[in-house]
Design a protein around this nucleic acid. Structure first.
Lengths: 223, 223
DNA sequence: GCACACATCTGAACACTGCTAAGATCAAGC
DNA sequence: GCTTGATCTTAGCAGTGTTCAGATGTGTGC
């Protein structure tokens, strides 16, 4: 579109797309910026008018992917079956979707997991973490988790799910057959939720944890 | 030692040491093989007589680090206080040690977590995963976990701990104050263990998971 | 309809990387 | 004391991220 001669219609998006394809084809690190440019038919230095550096491109791409994952998780939770009978059903569906995503796209997942080294600034919306937080709140409202266990619960369930996804994604842990992945996620979510629910009301000095994302969001709302 | 003129006494170990220092100083990716060689005072190509490639060096280093972590975790579990009163104390100590390690050495941890992409062959001993498995078995023996919940329990607790370590390590999750990290690990371990313990004996189609490490070990024992 | 300003992209170059191949240097065994 | 083999070096290749001066368009005000 928009003619392909000198000015490329939307080079920024094209770069991100090409990079994502390359990641999928050759792994999180098996590609170069020059290759991305060449695939689009543009000079190697063109990318620098849209991204500060290669790292910046990777970061931006990973934001895009993360937002897409957030939407997926939200949909998965919304369409969870059996919510009536089982209040945990929505979070289980979320967990299954998270883990399945890692397995469907291990290279992209690896890129995302490795791209956020200490840089909390991320305009990701909806952030997967936020989706999980919302579902935990909803679980409390539905009576599936005692309110006394709620504070900081996301900092138990989120790491658990993330760890499962990460280990499955980079091949450090393997399951037999593709259906088992979901079952494993379900077992993990169930165990964590019932474990949290069984906590004594005044659990020993509950730590106040904050995700980098939440931190940013909080800062934006109260300037 | 052994003269420093032409033949370097133990270049292989020296390379690993220098690489580890560089990782600690500049992050998991902020260094080059040439820099490692230069730091030792050796030509850039010397490393190739001891490692097939840069990746091979990284892999070997991460094995070494992982084995060290395994030992740390074993010691932490062994020296856990309050085992008498609380059968979960050993695993909690292990969890605390795991998470504290990530936080003490985030760059090295990042290297280790990112180095095992699909390559399960790892002569790591004692592997952290094995230490955790042994502690779970011991917990069952001590009556702290029903035997019916034991199968595959490591594939719930291990991801949970790993996720917490990974998120804390790369800055995607932050805790306030250094003591809180341990408390968070404790809460997570407790929740997972009591959650697993509360499972109905015939939990829905318990998946058979295998870690890459266990797989290798099993293969070695039954050829 | 035209000149100008601006965003966009190119070409050439720099310093650096992982890696290879051929040869120099040393230690040890006959 | 010579030879063998391991160990390290020198030189160089192809490819990388990044920069910068300049070419090429696109749109705006006249």
């Amino acid at each position: 579109m928009a003619g392909r001669s000198y000015h490329h219609g939307d080079l920024r998006a094209a770069l991100l797309d090409a990079a994502e394809s390359l990641v999928r084809e050759r792994g999180a690190d098996g590609w170069s910026l020059r290759e991305v440019s060449a695939r689009i038919g543009v000079s190697p230095s063109a990318a620098y008018h849209h991204f500060e550096s290669r790292d910046a491109l990777v970061r931006t791409l990973s934001w895009r992917v993360l937002a897409g994952l957030g939407e997926q998780l939200g949909r998965a939770a919304a369409h969870a079956r059996g919510q009536r009978a089982d209040p945990q059903a929505r979070l289980i569906a979320l967990g299954r979707a998270y883990v399945r995503w890692t397995q469907r796209d291990p290279a992209v997942a690896g890129l995302v997991f490795g791209a956020h080294r200490g840089e909390p600034e991320s305009p990701v919306s909806p952030h997967p973490h936020d989706v999980l937080v919302a579902e935990l709140d909803r679980l409390v409202d539905a009576g599936g988790l005692p309110a006394s266990s709620r504070p900081g619960a996301e900092f138990v369930l989120w790491p658990a799910l993330h760890g499962l996804a990460a280990l499955l994604g980079d091949g450090m842990m393997r399951l037999e057959g593709s259906r088992d992945v979901g079952s494993q996620a379900e077992r993990l979510v169930r165990a964590v939720l019932t474990g949290l629910g069984a906590e004594a009301p005044g659990f020993p000095d509950r730590p106040r944890a904050r995700s980098a994302h939440t931190e940013r969001a909080a800062k934006r709302e109260s300037p």
